[in-house]
Nucleic acid binder design. Structure first.
Length: 303
DNA sequence: CTTTCGCCCTGAGTGC
DNA sequence: TGCACTCAGGGCGAAA
């Protein structure tokens, strides 16, 4: 399940082959993979064929490719959803997964490639979207200095690895919210790039209970939590992302290795690496929360 | 306005 | 063997 580190691995892997490449042909095998493409923008295929990709940019879990010749106008937006993959292939490669969309591209130096969008559960999508200016005038994401981002990504907060991310604004928004800390971590309009795995891992590392109200999370614990969020994301990135169910593979089809480093997620019934008590799994937001009931507390005022 | 809920979707796994 | 059911969860529109 791709979160920030997995999407970044994909972005970094694609960038050298797609930046500067011409889109020569586009095939859509599954129309539902275009659910985020507005028909008002025009036909997806016609909008792409003959355009040149300027860069590969990422904010949180969103990935997009500004399109030439006017790179301030439109971009191809990609979200991997739960099971999406963007695979860089040699022309003619037969995909064993569920191929939804294929872009044929031609790079002036790297040559021809197929960019295969594979997505089992169709929670992911591709779309051509118009670009709008960032509210702060800073670069929209990692991979380009362009201060423009797709309109459907404009409401998404910067991610914690973005140099323009404001820690102060994040802490302020936490104190204004009336919700639990894990809900807040998963709210992409507050902080982006975190999904269920890294939320559980960061909360475990910071020893914060997932139901702790954001209002009562004091400044030092909030600061520690954000630091742990950054640490877990950076460590996962360094290891090439998490994969334990073969859903996630990078652009060459190889899996990440971070699953060996998980402390809480998916470890229900196994000992907490810190205190030895069993990790617990509880139902939460139609998914699961994994945590140590002994070392992850509800804060000093609840202890 | 804010917060929470239900839906989308498919393949692997489980129990009978 | 086959069938019904559960589970995985990101994002969004609807409901509360």
């Amino acid at each position: 399940m791709p979160e920030l580190p997995e999407v970044e691995v994909v972005r970094a892997g694609l960038a050298p082959a797609v930046a500067g490449a011409l889109i020569t042909a586009v095939e859509v095998f599954e129309p539902r993979s275009l659910k985020r493409h507005s028909p008002l923008a025009g036909p997806f295929v016609e909008l792409l064929e003959g355009r040149r990709i300027a860069a590969a940019v990422r904010r949180g879990k969103f990935l997009w490719f500004p399109l030439g010749p006017d790179t301030h106008a439109q971009a191809l937006v990609t979200h991997l959803g739960m099971s999406g993959q963007v695979l860089l292939r040699s022309p003619g490669t037969v995909e064993d997964g569920l191929l939804r969309i294929r872009l044929q591209i031609e790079h002036p130096e790297q040559g021809e490639f197929w960019v295969n969008f594979v997505d089992q559960r169709i929670f992911g999508s591709m779309a051509v979207d118009s670009l709008v200016p960032t509210s702060d005038g800073r670069a929209a994401g990692l991979g380009s200095e362009l201060a423009m981002l797709p309109s459907q990504v404009a409401h998404i907060s910067r991610d914690p690895l973005d140099p323009a991310f404001s820690d102060e604004a994040f802490f302020a928004s936490l104190s204004r919210k009336n919700t639990g800390i894990k809900r807040a971590l998963l709210d992409q309009t507050l902080i982006s790039g975190i999904g269920n795995i890294y939320a559980d891992e960061a909360l475990w590392a910071a020893r914060v209970h997932y139901l702790e109200p954001t209002r009562t999370l004091d400044a030092s614990r909030a600061s520690l939590l954000l630091a742990e969020v950054r640490l877990v994301l950076e460590r996962a990135l360094a290891e090439g992302g998490t994969s334990f169910d073969a859903q996630y593979v990078n652009v060459n089809g190889a899996s990440g290795y971070f699953s060996h480093s998980l402390n809480a997620y998916g470890r229900q019934g196994k000992p907490c690496p810190r205190c030895g008590n069993d990790i617990v799994r509880e139902k939460f937001m139609n998914r699961s929360s994994h945590f140590c009931a002994v070392c992850q507390t509800l804060g000093p005022s609840f202890a």
